[in-house]
């Protein structure tokens, strides 16, 4: 049936958790694109047929006209599905900049197609250029601050000699605990290298 593959593609995206990505389904994607070309060929041949019969394409209301219309509508629907798939994935990808920063971890990068990686890079650059113009870093301070300092535990061996904003360096050995400025700690927390200790 026309449009079923495209519907599968959209369902695949919609059934995933919000903000989570699955691998780009290029197989299904290609199938829908091929379906579009097929619709277009049939649409054109029907239009040609109407013209050969000497009928006016604007006013003819015969079987061929409605056949052509079905192909046109199926094509438009497929386009909407393809666009929705790519557009919504792109939106999720752009949101990753806010959630995990400008560098994508390996396991997420594997799920993107080449063009999507490119889009992420370009968007991250655009955002950086905006932030450098307004002189404010927007990727820190995601939650309202209660205390300028927070207690954190290091989960990953980040190493020593990390420069903090008060010009002191710290040694973030694995499992060590620190009292840090929230703005200093936030970047490590979003990358999963530290956890905040509450209570």
């Amino acid at each position: 049936m026309y449009g079923r593959t495209a519907c599968q593609l959209v369902k695949e995206f919609a059934s995933g958790d919000e903000g989570q990505l699955v691998s780009f389904n290029s197989d299904l994607f290609q199938q829908v694109v091929a379906e579009c070309s097929q619709h277009h060929l049939e649409l054109q041949s029907l239009i040609r047929k109407i013209q050969e019969e000497g009928l006016d394409i604007q006013t003819a209301r015969n079987a061929d006209h409605y056949g052509a219309l079905i192909h046109h509508l199926a094509l438009v629907r497929n386009k909407r599905c393809l666009m929705a798939y790519v557009y919504n994935r792109a939106e999720t990808i752009r949101n990753l900049v806010w959630k995990i920063g400008h560098v994508l971890p390996q396991e997420i990068e594997e799920k993107l197609c080449h063009a999507e990686e490119e889009h992420f890079r370009k968007h991250s650059t655009a955002l950086k250029s905006y932030m450098s113009k307004v002189l404010v870093d927007l990727t820190v301070d995601m939650v309202p601050p209660k205390d300028p300092y927070i207690k954190v535990r290091v989960l990953d061996d980040i190493g020593d000699g990390i420069l903090l904003s008060d010009d002191k360096t710290a040694n973030f050995a694995c499992h060590s605990m620190h009292l840090l400025k929230r703005t200093d700690a936030e970047q490590f927390i979003s990358r999963g290298q530290m956890e905040e200790l509450t209570g």
Partner: peptide
């Protein structure tokens, strides 16, 4: 950027009028 991305992945593969 988004325009280019959509063009590259979807639109360039569709028939001319679409």
């Amino acid at each position: 950027d988004l325009n280019r991305h959509l063009e590259e992945t979807v639109l360039s593969k569709l028939p001319e009028n679409y």
